[in-house]
């Protein structure tokens, strides 16, 4: 028994799965499942959302089988680097910081970020000066969190594992505002009961240095072939109307 089979045997004994992927017949896709309407788990435990529909369309276009892996946001890039899955399709913005760790496909949508506050709050101006001393919540590890950390230095920033927890604390009055992707906030504010507590305040933010150049599919740096496959498939579904159809199912306007 050589060293290779020994380690493989140990890996199997540990309850782990090993798979070689020279020709990409199966692609494992990591997603969060806690970011409606882009990705979430429905009451039957199924992963759903815009990201998932786009992912399925891409897989069909690339003619590969896709398996979905739910992974908490905090560990989603480490999970990709460590090989738990081969691609992240989870509304991840393409930023210089992340590009140091992983590669990205072309963007598949782009939306700005916004603040939301409780209805009737006195927040009208969302500049760093006006928000000084206020408590702002965001999901950790996101472009919104990084932006707050760097720009809103005189506000108190609280970071949550999921956007849902931040929203819960805004509704409960622990936060003066939350800062997140505008569509995700829109979904919560307009389409849920507890979201009715709050409303958008201030302008939209899209500073490229922080919010990147859109949302892309994250891939390991060495998987250039897979990136090209995704880019080709993305161009194809944009051209043949599939993307437009999925977009229309979720939003009355184009988010590309």
């Amino acid at each position: 028994m050589n060293a290779k089979s020994l380690i493989l045997a140990a890996a199997v004994a540990l309850g782990t799965t090993a798979a070689a992927h020279a020709e990409w017949t199966t692609v494992r896709i990591g997603t969060e499942g806690a970011y409606p309407p882009f990705n979430y788990v429905d009451s039957d435990g199924q992963l759903r959302g815009f990201d998932l529909d786009i992912a399925r369309a891409l897989c069909e276009q690339m003619n590969v089988t896709c398996e979905f892996v739910a992974q908490d946001w905090d560990g989603i890039i480490p999970g990709l680097v460590a090989g738990r899955y081969d691609a992240i399709i989870a509304s991840m913005s393409i930023t210089p910081e992340r590009l140091e760790q992983v590669d990205f496909s072309d963007k598949y949508y782009q939306t700005p970020a916004r603040f939301a506050a409780r209805r009737g709050s006195d927040i009208t101006d969302t500049s760093p000066e006006a928000m000084a001393g206020r408590v702002i919540g965001a999901q950790s590890s996101t472009v919104s969190a990084n932006f707050l950390e760097d720009i809103y230095t005189s506000s108190e920033i609280r970071l949550y594992a999921t956007q849902d927890e931040a929203n819960l604390d805004l509704a409960a009055g622990r936060l003066d505002a939350v800062f997140a992707d505008s569509i995700v906030l829109y979904e919560w504010l307009e389409k849920t009961d507890d979201g009715s507590c709050c409303e958008f305040v201030g302008d939209a933010y899209a500073d490229e240095e922080y919010f990147g150049t859109g949302v892309g599919i994250a891939l390991r740096k060495e998987d250039d072939d897979l990136r090209e496959m995704f880019n080709a498939a993305l161009a194809e579904i944009l051209a043949n109307g599939t993307y437009e159809r999925i977009n229309a199912e979720y939003f009355p306007f184009s988010i590309y």
Binding site: S140, S141, A145, L159
Partner: peptide, 11 residues
């Protein structure tokens, strides 16, 4: 620690 990891991804 978790904050630093969430930005640097450095173990």
């Amino acid at each position: 620690t978790r904050l630093a990891f969430s930005r640097s991804f450095d173990f």
